[in-house]
């Protein structure tokens, strides 16, 4: 091992490890916002969304993100909202 190499290794050893707590905070903010959005939604919503994407993809080339399914609870009933963004030129 060269002297320079050794010095680098010693310096590496003395260096403070990188701060990581801000990664924790950012990741938590994103995942928790997402999970709060799903909180009161029934479990079948994700499966329904996947199936709808498959059906529509048979006719139109769309990507997975183009289909949004949402369930909104009102007094006495719920509204299933379906939003499909189709590509240009159709």
């Amino acid at each position: 091992m060269s002297i320079a190499n050794k010095i680098t290794r010693i310096l590496d050893y003395l260096k403070r490890p990188e701060k990581t707590s801000h990664f924790a905070k950012e990741r938590l903010q994103i995942i928790i916002a997402h999970e709060r959005g799903m909180r009161d939604k029934p479990d079948y919503l994700t499966a329904l969304q996947r199936d709808l994407v498959d059906v529509i993809a048979k006719y139109v080339a769309i990507d997975k993100e183009a289909v949004k399914v949402d369930l909104e609870r009102k007094e006495g009933f719920s509204v299933l909202e379906l939003n499909v963004t189709l590509p240009d030129g159709l």
Partner: peptide, 16 residues
């Protein structure tokens, strides 16, 4: 550890 940046701080957790 919070001061070192290794641990979520009180205000981080409170905010989340």
């Amino acid at each position: 550890r919070v001061a070192r940046g290794d641990m979520l701080s009180l205000s981080d957790v409170n905010e989340i």
